[in-house]
Design a protein around this nucleic acid. Structure first.
Length: 805
DNA sequence: AGCACGCCGACT
DNA sequence: GTCGGCGTGCTC
């Protein structure tokens, strides 16, 4: 019987990341288990925080008085053995705190909320009682401590013992309930009651007869009312007469409950697909884990391979995890999986409310779902007995989390596959260089789907040199060739998709007299014009202000918006092709829940001729009537100071090209660019992944970049630019002697966007092939910089960053 | 984070 | 002399 629990405390900004020992009260000694959340007192005051039990035993290295656990939050562990091990590994491999990792793995509602509460004491004076509490017995600290004077007064009162401080740890997890009906009468009592009913009270008789069929079950009131045709009024009468009880009934919020999902049958596989499914399923029961790299051009039927592999795994009584990028987690996609596996599927994505996510999490935990489909964080889904992990579009950068813990879902998937001895399938038409290189070395096993289903040809790709176009018509977003093609599709009643590379391509306000550009007061970038809300917005910090009518600098009225956002493109297109029906899809039009799906459905049902959008339209959508794809600005990403710029451009172009001509009609792709001879664009034109891979690998080799080197990025930020820079130079001096001589340290350099949210950013990049000292050095750095956070300096450690800006 | 301890300047 | 500023250290 364990008496002492090792508890990880929920104070992530703390200097130390280690468990604390707590006494387990005798009454709970048989209940408390590792992986449960508890509430513990922490610190000198009366502070109470949530903690996670790591271990239960009878020993502690701490030689002082142990405090006791205050409350046990969970009846069963929220993290099992795997979850605890995984959180520890994640903390160590991403240089994050274990409690932060554990919180990332759990639904957001499980994070405790803390409320500081003031209560009167026995010695509270009438005056204080009056103006602090009035008639209440407690007040929330934040509501009364609004001014510095109020704060110091409260401190004095607390010291004098006139008010008592109390911390409430709130569990936000709420189970959704609906009202249920439960019969309370025995069979004999029913007959008695039926006899007592006044003549002509037909509804009461119906109610009693209905109740008799329940057999002690609790039925939702709504269902009961419908089935027996009784109203709430009659039910209330029944409650009064003691025939039945109303009782809350726990239900899951089902975000897809209303969608009528069509069952789908497995499709017939072609030879390549069959080979892939066979290989994957053969690896399921092997003691050694295999990682497959499934390379298949768009339209080659990767999804069908996933679905049939999952089916095989389910048939063995195991579970399956399928990861997709958030952006391609479309209703189309969800319906396809749900259509195949029905209720066994749980879906996790950012569009769900936190309550809905919690419900899906519980369904998985209780083994009510055997298949999980979800975006990045779904990799932590509490599945047991995993037989297969699939990661679609494995090259997508959204699999990497931008803030702590800065994990890549691929790494977590590989870790879990080791734990469960199950295969992983990494699927992509354009694998990341890292993964493709690993397949080359035999670390991953390569599976190739070279043919499109039904042997459809890939679309023809034309490259349009915008340098020539610009001379012909100034400042248009559309080349002549693209316009002609668009008009042609309109005439033939076929659809077109236009994509804008969002990066660096938004409308800003410029004064034509003095050249003044409206910038964010907090960040180092121009504000973006948003016509829908009629405001100027900062895309980095969210700052918002009115559109200026006169130039703030020279007071000229010649201030105009300029540049090419999706709105601007839409406007121009309406001018050029007044008859075209256009749908625009970008961050503004899809912000509302479900808007994304609605727009796609409208486009799919032929309500529009042209779909304009950013990157979000490049993925996953499959509309048979689309025969033209236009990329308005293929190369805005190429100019970025990031060695992955070519790779991203190639992937994006290849992907968006796949949107054209997926059905019987052949497609045509137009790529507008100022760099028509760039290799990323040329290889994309010829759908030549292999060519691109070989060429880009040479470039990476020459530059000493991944996959030939590993990288770690260190970023410092401070309100004062000089301090941020100075600290980075000190850090450089500190790092140098600690790392192996072969390790390259680049920087410090200011980040390309040097100021965000009033903070200045500087970075150091460490490149290495092998450095036995690195892990220890970075761990030390993490601990030491923690202490300096007080001074406002923040240092972030990012292992294998995907963005260098 | 949040609380206490402790060491310095400006007050009844 | 003390009240209160915030720099520093610790939390089982």
């Amino acid at each position: 019987m364990a008496q002492i629990a090792q508890v990880l405390v929920d104070v992530p900004t703390m200097q130390t990341d280690r468990p604390y020992s707590y006494q387990i009260p005798t009454a709970w000694q048989s209940q408390v288990q590792p992986g449960m959340r508890v509430v513990v007192p922490f610190g000198r005051g009366k502070r109470r925080v949530q903690g996670l039990v790591l271990k239960c035993d009878d020993v502690t290295t701490f030689d002082g008085d142990l405090k006791a656990i205050d409350a046990v939050v969970d009846l069963a562990p929220v993290l099992n053995h795997e979850g605890l091990e995984l959180s520890a590994w994640l903390a160590q491999s991403t240089f994050a705190f274990q409690i932060t990792c554990a919180q990332t793995m759990l639904p957001a509602v499980m994070r405790a909320k803390y409320v500081k509460i003031l209560r009167p004491t026995a010695t509270t004076s009438a005056q204080v009682q009056q103006d602090l509490f009035a008639t209440e017995t407690s007040v929330v600290y934040d509501q009364v401590a609004t001014t510095p004077e109020a704060v110091s007064r409260l401190l004095r009162l607390q010291a004098a013992g006139e008010v008592d401080v109390y911390y409430q740890v709130k569990n936000q997890a709420r189970k959704k309930t609906i009202m249920g009906i439960k019969a309370t009468l025995s069979a004999a009592e029913f007959d008695q009651a039926l006899g007592d009913v006044r003549k002509g009270a037909a509804k009461q008789v119906a109610l009693l007869n209905g109740l008799q069929t329940l057999n002690g079950e609790v039925l939702p009131q709504k269902d009961f009312e419908q089935r027996f045709d009784v109203s709430d009024a009659v039910i209330r009468t029944g409650v009064q007469k003691g025939w039945l009880k109303k009782q809350p009934l726990e239900v899951y919020r089902d975000p897809y409950a209303t969608a009528d999902i069509q069952a789908t049958k497995p499709l017939t596989l072609n030879d390549e697909q069959q080979v892939a499914v066979d290989q994957i399923t053969a690896a399921v029961n092997q003691p050694a884990t295999t990682t497959f790299l499934l390379e298949g051009v768009t339209g080659s039927g990767k999804t069908e391979v996933y679905l049939q592999s999952i089916a095989a795994v389910l048939a063995q009584g195991k579970t399956a995890l399928m990861l997709v990028p958030e952006i391609s987690l479309t209703p189309q996609m969800v319906q396809r999986v749900k259509g195949r596996f029905g209720k066994a599927v749980a879906v996790l994505h950012s569009g769900l409310s936190s309550g809905e996510k919690y419900d899906e999490w519980r369904r998985i935990k209780r083994h009510e779902a055997q298949v999980v489909v979800g975006a990045r964080s779904a990799v932590f889904a509490p599945l047991d007995n995993i037989g297969l992990i699939i990661m679609d579009e494995e090259h997508e950068s959204s699999y990497k989390q931008d803030d702590a813990p800065r994990y890549h879902a691929r790494q977590v998937a590989l870790w879990r596959s080791q734990y469960h001895h199950c295969p992983v399938v990494l699927g992509s038409a354009t694998p990341s260089l890292e993964s493709r290189a690993r397949a080359e070395k035999g670390v991953y096993q390569r599976l190739v789907l070279a043919d499109r289903v039904n042997k459809r040809p890939l679309p023809k790709v034309s490259i349009i040199d915008m340098k020539n176009e610009l001379q012909k018509h100034a400042e248009s977003n559309f080349s002549q060739a693209l316009l002609v093609a668009l008009q042609d599709r309109l005439d033939r009643h076929e659809q077109s998709v236009l994509m804008l590379n969002r990066r660096g391509y938004s409308s800003f306000v410029l004064c034509r007299d003095c050249g003044f550009v409206l910038k964010c007061p907090n960040c180092d970038i121009s504000l973006t014009l948003h016509m829908d809300t009629h405001t100027m917005k900062c895309h980095y910090c969210g700052h918002e202000e009115a559109i200026p009518r006169v130039c703030p600098n020279c007071h000229s009225r010649q201030i105009r918006y300029y540049g090419t956002g999706t709105e601007k493109v839409e406007e121009e297109l309406r001018d050029l092709l007044p008859d075209a029906r256009i749908i625009r899809m970008d961050n503004d039009t899809t912000r509302k829940k479900g808007a994304h799906a609605k727009l796609l459905t409208r486009f799919g049902s032929g309500e529009a001729d042209i779909l304009i959008g950013t990157q979000m339209i490049a993925k996953g959508l499959d509309f048979p009537n689309v025969t033209l794809v236009g990329v308005l600005n293929a190369d805005t990403a190429l100019g970025l100071p990031d060695f992955r710029a070519s790779e991203r451009t190639f992937q994006l172009l290849t992907q968006v090209s796949g949107r054209a001509g997926r059905a019987e009609k052949t497609g045509h792709v137009y790529i507008q660019t100022f760099n028509p001879d760039h290799y990323a664009i040329r290889f994309a034109q010829h759908h030549d992944y292999e060519g691109f891979f070989k060429y880009e690998m040479r470039m990476r080799h020459q530059g000493g970049y991944p996959p030939y080197y590993f990288t770690v990025q260190l970023t410092a930020s401070d309100l004062d630019e000089a301090i941020a820079a100075k600290r980075m130079y000190q850090l450089l001096q500190w790092l140098k002697p600690r790392l192996t001589p072969n390790t390259v340290i680049l920087g410090p350099t200011p980040k390309p966007i040097a100021r965000v949210n009033r903070r200045y950013y500087y970075q150091i990049v460490i490149k290495y092939k092998q450095d036995p000292n690195l892990t220890a050095t970075l761990s030390t750095l993490l601990q030491e910089t923690q202490a300096q956070q007080r001074q406002g300096l923040q240092i972030a450690i990012d292992v294998e960053p995907l963005h260098f800006m």
